[in-house]
Design a protein around this nucleic acid. Structure first.
Lengths: 162, 162
DNA sequence: CTTATTTTCATACTAAAGTATGAGGTTTTA
DNA sequence: TAAAACCTCATACTTTAGTATGAAAATAAG
């Protein structure tokens, strides 16, 4: 099966070469034949050359059309998938990676969104207030926001948190 | 104006013809020149004809590439973009009435959810900072919350704001 | 028209959030 | 194994948010 496919590809790939070779052979034969007639009958030299020019131009055009590869144009169609806010939350993992948000940062972002204060977050995660503040600061930088309400709004909009 | 456009289209449409005509004229001149050299110096006839063939083949190829519109093969790629379904937000009017939230309060609640600071809200609504604070205070009481993040979370959960 | 509700605004104060800087320990990656 | 990334924590300070109280104007409802 594979051998069959290979053979088939070989023929297809070299089709133009084969065709041109055969055509050239035929045209050379034609040249010789016309040359003989020219020598014998001494017809107009210009007509002969003109015929050569036209014939080979046509051959060139035909060959170019066969050889040219179709230009591939890719169109990206954005298909909007509507997601109900909480039910079908799908994490935008690529964006999380792009923004370089760590697991801890996402965790804290979630707790912000749930309405917790910094002090409450310390109790939930068993860390100090300054740790929480540091994480929040990092989150703000990565999301390019100034306050927690902005962070939450943006994170939900971008599907970073449910 | 229309006449100008017509003239322009005429030139564009016949561009290939014009180019080919000029090229042919040039090549005929070249032929004549080569012919004269051929007659004078009596070089090989086959080389001369071969040169003609090659030249005109190249011309044909060049012409075809210019003439032919590249075959454009279009590949459509679907990319899924997750969009929150804000369109289907249905205000929980009965609950708004139950909680006795006024229009102004809902308005300010929305701006909170969008991530605005108090000062920013003053600018948007053309009221003073203490007005904003008073409204927010009233919102907190009616929603029984302690901070804006809680208010936003609860309001979205209860479909009070989009 | 009177009353109730809403909106507006101020003041003084406390609490929480946010900023900037520095440092050390742990885990992951190349 | 070294470097990078992540997590943790502290300190000092500024800014914003939140609280309590009071008052007046505007609008809506009875």
């Amino acid at each position: 099966m594979y051998t069959m496919t290979d053979n088939k590809n070989l023929l297809l790939r070299n089709k133009a070469t084969i065709v041109y070779s055969i055509s050239l052979a035929f045209l050379l034969f034609l040249l010789k034949w016309l040359e003989i007639r020219f020598i014998i009958f001494d017809h107009s030299f210009e007509i002969y050359i003109g015929a050569i020019a036209v014939i080979f131009t046509v051959l060139g055009i035909w060959l170019a059309l066969k050889l040219s590869k179709p230009k591939i144009e890719t169109i990206v169609v954005e298909k909007e998938v509507y997601v109900n806010r909480n039910e079908n939350f799908v994490l935008n993992a690529s964006l999380v990676s792009q923004l370089e948000l760590s697991k801890r940062e996402l965790e804290i972002l979630s707790l912000l969104a749930q309405g917790h204060s910094n002090q409450e977050i310390t109790a939930k995660l068993f860390v100090s207030l300054s740790t929480v503040k540091t994480h929040i600061q990092n989150i703000f930088e990565k999301l390019d926001v100034k306050r927690r309400t902005q962070a939450v709004e943006k994170a939900k909009r971008l599907n970073l948190i449910p």
